[in-house]
Structures are given as C-alpha cells and as structure tokens.
Nucleic acid binder design. Structure first.
Lengths: 163, 163
DNA sequence: TCGAGATAGTTGACATATCAAGTATGTCCG
DNA sequence: CGGACATACTTGATATGTCAACTATCTCGA
C-alpha cells in the first residue's frame, strides 16, 4: 500500500501549491462548519450540536421513542458516544431512558416535555442557518456537484478502511 | 435576522428530501474526514492529526523554530489550544519550549531529534493518503469547484459572525 | 436445559477543544 | 519615570469523542 521505507521520501507525490491551498481550506472547513453550527445553537437555543442531533432523531422516530442502538445506527455514531451523551442529556432533563419491554438489554429513549420544547424552539433557527449558509449561496448545480464530490472522497477513504 | 417567534415555525424554509440527504452527507464528511486522517496517522506513525499539524508547521518554519503565537496564527487555532497541545507534545519529547530572547513573554518552539524523526517518518504516508483520498478521485475541474464551493460556504458563515 | 457466543449498553481512562480567568511582560503616553 | 493598557501565554473547568474493558441479557444448538 505504500512505497518501501527506503525510498518513501523520494516516491511520495507531494502536494503542489494549489493542492496545499485546497487541502488547507478543506481542513478549515471540516473544523469550522460544525463549530459554527454549534455556536448558533448554543447562542440561540442553549443546546449543543450533538444534543440537537439526538433531540431531532428521537423526535422524528415513529413512536416518539426509540432504542438507544437504533439511535446510534440512525446517526451513524458509536454506541458509547450515544451512551455518554444520553446520560448527560437525561441529567439535563431532556429525555428519559427506561428498560425496553421487548429486550431486557435494551433502553427505550423518549423526550420529556422539556426535550420537546427544546427541539421545537431550536429547529427553526437552526434550519434557517443551514439554509442561509449551505444552500442559499450555492446554485442547484453546485449543490449536486458538492454532494457527488463528498461521496467520492468518502468512498475513497472507505476503501482504505479508515472512514 | 429571524422570523418573529410567533410564526417562526410557519416561516421556516425547511429542507426537502434532497437537501436533507446532502446535509447529512456534509455532516458525515466533516466528522469523518478528520477522523480518517487521524486513524491513518495513529496507525502508521503513532501521532495524532493535530500533533502532525504542529510538527509540520514547526518543521516548515524558516529557522526550524518559531513563536507559539505565530504557530497559532499559522494554523488558525486558538492560543490556548496550541498551549495545551505544546505541553503534551513537550512531555512526549517531540519539541521543547524556551523563553524567546526578543520578548520575555514569548516562547520559542523547536523540534527535538525525536520530533524531526517523527515528522519525517509520518509525512510520506500521510501525504500519500491525502493524495489518494482527496486528489486522485477528483478531476482538476472538480477540485476547483470544490474549493470554490467551500469558500462560498465559509464566507456565508463568516458573514453571520459564527465561523 | 445448559453453555458458548452474540448482542445491548455502560463505564472509565485518556485525548482533545473551548472558554474564562489568571500571570507575566511589553508599550506608550503623560 | 510610572501607571494604564495591550499582548503572550498558561491554566483549570467543562464538554466531548474514542477505545477498551466490562456487565447483563439473549439465542441457538447439542
């Protein structure tokens, strides 16, 4: 998968100036976008971006409740990440967990009244920001191109087993 | 900047299905890309992505040494973030800090022998991954389009003062 | 029914980012 | 010169992501 150690330095296809610029912008983007979203949510609704994701996912589930593992799968997150977050959010009073009736190992997640109010209060401002920052500045063609490009990159990383 | 509370729900321009798909991919990308890079570096060179950034920035400085603040500016990071990281990296033996001769408040950062070896060992594999995952899968036109798109989005967020 | 292995979730340790506060030093103007 | 303010950096508190155990429960086949 890689040039032999001895000549690794010589055989490496280093980045030229344009490539370095794009690479810099890409890393800046990957760090900046989630942070910008986080700030908007914290300032306007006192909820973090990851908390918002949880609230949104649970609120959109068919029964208004779902299993912790399904939540992890829906979001594409690790179980332990979800578990830690649920514990914090439960202590903040946004949701509660109770043993699943069908499976003694499982946990059913449901929003509390406060959780419902939080997501309903936060959603309009959040969606508005997403629209203004992501969609409004881009033509439909640029949006499609972006989506295809991101998928290409992700697949290339997935092939290396690192995504 | 936002619709009045009373009618916020009604006036919000919600995302349609395509937009939701793209939005999901974008968030997945922003989280997945740095993580994939981190994993490659950790597996192949036992160094984290942020540590690599520091090593690379210091190694590319003109004198092989630079001020902590310049480092923060170069990377676009907060001072405290750099400070915490430098402390950890110093304890790992990759670099050392000493009082700047010109300014009693400043710190000069320089790589140790181990630091130089670490960056020299890590760079080829890292650059190879970046090339294979980011540049090789994309045509030059797609690369340019991506760069422009990212800049558009970043500027839109900067206008809102949240980037 | 019993035990091996799979599955659901939790927990603790550690690395990291961010913010607010603190310390030390430099600068500049009266 | 001297004090107010700016600047450089550090530190501590808190939130978070990740990994590697760990516990509890379930499933399935002999």
């Amino acid at each position: 998968m890689e040039a032999p150690k001895k000549s690794a330095q010589e055989q490496t296809r280093w980045l030229n100036e344009n490539e370095q610029l794009m690479w810099l912008e890409l890393r800046e983007f990957a760090r900046g976008l989630p942070r910008a979203l986080d700030r908007q949510l914290l300032e306007d609704a006192d909820v973090s971006g990851v908390e918002y994701s949880i609230l949104a996912a649970v609120s959109e589930s068919s029964q208004g409740a779902l299993r912790s593992g399904d939540l992890a799968a829906t979001l594409g997150w690790e179980r332990s990440r979800v578990s830690h977050l649920l514990k914090r959010m439960e202590s903040r009073g946004f949701l509660h967990r109770c043993a699943a009736s069908s499976d003694g190992r499982g946990q059913e997640i449901a929003l509390t009244q406060a959780g419902w109010e939080k997501i309903r209060g936060a959603a309009p401002g959040h969606v508005t920001m997403v629209r203004e920052v992501i969609f409004d500045p881009l033509t439909p063609a640029a949006q499609n191109q972006l989506l295809e490009t991101l998928i290409l990159i992700r697949h290339a990383a997935e092939e290396r087993g690192l995504w």
